[in-house]
Design a protein around this nucleic acid. Sequence first.
DNA 1: CGTCATTGGTTGTTGCGACAACCATTGCAC
DNA 2: GTGCAATGGTTGTCGCAACAACCAATGACG
Lengths: 176, 176
Amino acid sequence: MTVDTRWLDSKQKAAWVRLAAVLELLPAALDSQLRRDAQLTHFDYFVLAMLSEAPGRTLRMTALAEHTTATLARLSHVVQRLETRGLLERFPCPEDKRATNARLTDDGWAKVREAAPGHVATVRENVIDALTPEQVTQLAGIADAILHRLDPERARAAVYERYDLNHSEDGPTGRR
Amino acid sequence: MTVDTRWLDSKQKAAWVRLAAVLELLPAALDSQLRRDAQLTHFDYFVLAMLSEAPGRTLRMTALAEHTTATLARLSHVVQRLETRGLLERFPCPEDKRATNARLTDDGWAKVREAAPGHVATVRENVIDALTPEQVTQLAGIADAILHRLDPERARAAVYERYDLNHSEDGPTGRR
DNA sequence: CGTCATTGGTTGTTGCGACAACCATTGCAC
DNA sequence: GTGCAATGGTTGTCGCAACAACCAATGACG
């Protein structure tokens, strides 16, 4: 095969090794906190959070799949479980009989607001509060650059702006 | 519960949302490349890589588990599969009859050297080459800070130095 | 108004990770 | 040297994600 591999120099390797470790440990930490405190996967939480910000707390399955970076098949299974638990409900879309809408129930809305503080605290503890303000800014730039390689379409789509952690007492978002 | 939640400001949220997306997409990208080109999970690769650098290409299961940030149970399953495929072999440790050693076979050694170039290329493509040299340095600092929160013990142990991507033609590591 | 490709979604199967139960060996206490 | 806790590892079961097969509705084209 290719014999002219460009290996990583020591600085690059140091960065990569540490990132790889974070990739292994951070998702596990987030998942276990949400599981323990809210009986929710991080992905479950993400799904509920996206719905909570949508107009009418309702989204088409396809749209929800895009927001959550998931395949439709995966989303279908997850939504099925969440529906069984009464956190959301599905109903056929009036405009397009092929389509299905998912809507957050009142219980689901309560669940999101209940789970948000603990989740934010975990994010702070393990990420944000571990960094200086400059590093937070740097991280945004770095992650953005990586995203443009991983998924150019979505990265440009500014979908990421919507992942809103500010579930305050009076509403789903901090912007008014 | 706690009513005084410290929510994320917009800069912090921007950083977190993008990091969350990377956490979702990057492991999938790494896994699928290695699966496609070498029939290996990223974790499988990691296991083989650690063994390839160990003296005698051999490690105790417990030691291997520490190097790979895995539980013993998980490692046991993975090693079982790799043993079936002939990439490594297990044998009882002479000094301690409770213990089991795992040793890389010649086939396993060949597999690691065959898989390394493609893996490094993927890492470059999606991470390193997406960043400026300054960002690479920043990333190392950021990831290190996060690691100290996630796993203080291991972060200090400099185990991460050992994740060596430089599998050149004449040996397992770049240091001589 | 048929047929054919596309879109939207669900379901079955498979493989892996987490957790818990379990067995064997070792080391220590007395 | 017997009891017992700690260490080292394996196995079984459960839950979830990926993949593929499938069905239903839509729309474009003739």
